[in-house]
């Protein structure tokens, strides 16, 4: 049995005097789709920021494939295969959709300053490969007709797709999706759902945060977070039947 792809051990964090996370521990096994739910302010985004390295927790430990990464920088974690999207899509607004998606390939490519300035043949070849791979990825996510559009001019739903396509280009082992369905139409959510399942089928482990209970049904295992503590773990059906979760959501 290999180590879980992501492990959080006794993670705690406070902003000022406010304990946002209190002794959170859980593990995401390799493969499949895991979920994280919780009402607003329960600490989901803080947890995501800690897992992806944007925030160093006050206490506790994060492990990626069994290796402690608690103090690793964001780029170091990305290079180790942990890629995330953001609650508000962080796309490159002045760049085209094609360029946004191409950026996903940055760490899989190597042309440096000198090679690029002097346009060595290896650099040209590599850049053509970047463009070709970005095109294939855009085609897959239905973004090809928009490839020359500035990403900042797209509606929120399509910006999310651009972000997910870009994340996929980065070749993640573990993909953290923060509220990927917000701002999407019903049809778009259905398509997103299929893409998430497709990504999982390719062997990418997915950790999904969402308010959308319909979307959360794709998860094999869901963790319910409430006031900085995990109060239930199970399938979506288990979670919805759990008395502690019902209390938390219905204000009991």
């Amino acid at each position: 049995m290999s180590a879980p792809i992501l492990e959080l051990n006794s993670v705690a964090h406070a902003f000022g005097g406010l304990n946002v996370l209190r002794d959170v521990s859980f593990a995401v096994p390799r493969g499949g789709i895991a979920g994280l739910i919780g009402p607003n302010g329960s600490g989901k985004t803080t947890l995501f920021n800690i897992a992806s390295g944007y925030l160093v927790p006050n206490a506790g430990e994060i492990r990626l494939e069994g290796r402690a990464i608690t103090r690793d920088s964001v780029p170091a974690r990305s290079r180790a295969g942990l890629i995330r999207t953001f609650q508000t899509p962080k796309i490159f607004g002045h760049m085209t959709v094609a360029e946004n998606v191409a950026m996903g390939l940055y760490m899989k490519t190597r042309s440096g300053f000198a090679a690029t300035m002097f346009r060595g043949p290896a650099e040209r070849r590599e850049y053509r490969r970047i463009e070709a791979e970005a095109e294939a990825m855009m085609d897959r996510f239905g973004l090809l007709p928009l490839s020359k559009t500035r990403a900042g001019e797209l509606p929120a739903g399509q910006q999310r797709l651009v972000e997910i396509a870009r994340a996929r280009m980065a070749g993640p082992k573990l993909l953290l999706l923060d509220e990927p369905s917000s701002g999407l139409s019903h049809d778009e959510v259905q398509r997103l759902r299929r893409w998430i399942e497709e990504l999982a089928a390719e062997g990418i482990t997915i950790l999904l945060v969402s308010h959308d209970m319909g979307l959360m049904n794709v998860c094999q295992r869901v963790h319910a977070l409430y006031f900085g503590k995990i109060i239930a773990i199970g399938t979506m059906a288990d979670i919805q039947a759990d008395p502690a979760v019902r209390d938390a959501y219905l204000g009991g």
Binding site: S52, Y54, S73, V74, P75, S78, R79, I83, R84, F86, K90, I91, F92, G93, H94, M95, E99, N100, A102, M103, G104, Y106, M107, G152, E163, R166, A170
Partner: peptide, 17 residues
């Protein structure tokens, strides 16, 4: 590409390694 991306959304660029 990376330089221009940093101008638009630095945190996302870090997240791409």
């Amino acid at each position: 590409l990376a330089m221009r991306a940093v101008r638009d959304a630095a945190p996302a660029v870090e997240g791409l390694g």
